[in-house]
């Protein structure tokens, strides 16, 4: 994650995406409006936001997984795996995808092919990128299943996805993604479809694998609890813009953007129930109705005319950037009841 200029030269940086602007064909507004992300070695970066904020589109665009011709990229640069790609004209080479940058998805059932065995599906990723024989690939698959904590891996190799539970399928997805020792793992809502006890197991697994391999992880989620649990740094997105980003402690203990504060106030707490939940008024506008400038301004209780001009994402504290004209709010705004 980019936090001021001093980090951009850091040799530990595995992936740097800068100023990605993307528009879907047939739309008059950009879906992503200047998204930048940086991932360092061994770091878990969480991209958090509600449906329609562009968090998944960012990941799909990074991996070049959007349907061909569905979107135009008018700006964007990707620095990863020793390549410097101008995303407006080129995309991630397919020999990188699933090899040095891997991805896991939300729905483990629909991402696995129901008519191939687990072993074949993990082995395919190995054969595709590393070559070798089928036996070697299956050995590797078995080793990976062991590593993600699946009991009886040699038996599971010859089973089909329908024979596994949801948590196990997600483990298989992770095994498949990590089979080629990627430098970067992109996880798109990996635990959303799972029960909390299974979610806890998968988060533990991702954390252990991160410690073991030093891979960088981009985790996309809508759940602030998951973010607090696993992230090192956080980017909060709204309407295709990163509105606040920084170290996890900073974001949770010192949130600055009205959207972040709204999200945290709206979340029902386990420990401290209040009478009424604070809300974020209204709903997310459609892409066609996105306002100019700060895109949160139509729902923001503090917005003024000035917000028609887009606030820059700028530093407010060490390791903490926010895009709001009125941050910090307690200094710049008062409210009379």
């Amino acid at each position: 994650m980019q936090l001021g200029d001093e980090n951009s030269a850091d040799s530990g940086t595995l992936l740097a995406l800068s100023d990605l602007v993307l528009r879907f064909k047939g739309h008059k507004n950009d879906v992503l409006d200047g998204v930048s992300l940086t991932v360092k070695r061994g770091e878990v970066v969480c991209v958090v936001g509600e449906s329609g904020c562009g968090k998944s589109v960012t990941a799909m665009a990074l991996m070049d997984l959007l349907p061909a011709g569905s979107a135009t990229i008018s700006s964007g640069n990707l620095d990863a795996c020793g390549l410097n790609l101008d995303l407006t004209s080129t995309c991630l080479p397919s020999e990188m995808r699933g090899n040095r940058i891997a991805m896991i998805f939300q729905e483990p059932m629909s991402s696995l092919n129901p008519s191939f065995t687990i072993g074949d599906q993990i082995g395919e990723a190995v054969l595709r990128h590393k070559g070798g024989t089928r036996t070697q690939a299956l050995d590797r698959a078995q080793e990976m299943l062991q590593r993600v904590g699946i009991a009886n891996p040699e038996q599971r190799l010859s089973e089909y996805p329908h024979q596994l539970s949801g948590g196990m399928r997600q483990r298989v997805m992770i095994a498949m993604a990590l089979a080629n020792d990627p430098e970067i793992l992109i996880a798109d809502e990996p635990t959303t479809a799972l029960d909390v006890t299974i979610q806890a197991q998968i988060l533990d697994l991702i954390r252990d694998l991160r410690d073991e391999t030093g891979m960088g992880t981009i985790m996309i989620t809508h759940d602030l609890g998951v973010v607090a649990e696993i992230a090192d740094t956080v980017a909060v997105m709204y309407g295709g813009q990163v509105v606040e980003q920084g170290a996890v402690g900073e974001i949770f203990n010192n949130p600055q953007h009205p959207y972040t504060i709204g999200l945290m106030s709206a979340m029902p707490r386990l420990d401290n129930p209040v009478g009424r939940l604070a809300i974020v008024p209204g709903t997310v506008p459609t892409i066609a109705n996105m306002p100019q400038g700060c895109r949160f301004r139509t729902r923001c209780v503090f917005a003024t005319q000035a917000c028609a001009e887009r606030p820059k994402l700028s530093q407010i504290a060490p390791e903490h950037d926010v895009a709001c004209h009125y941050a910090p709010l307690e200094v710049n705004v008062s409210v009379a009841i």
Binding site: P258, I261, G262, S265, A278, I279, V280, P281, V301, F302, T304, Y326, L329, E330, N332, V333, S334, V335, A336, I337
Partner: peptide, 13 residues
């Protein structure tokens, strides 16, 4: 501030 503003308080900048 946020809670008061969403509860209908008057915001002054």
């Amino acid at each position: 501030l946020y809670r008061n503003a969403t509860d209908g308080g008057t915001v002054t900048h």
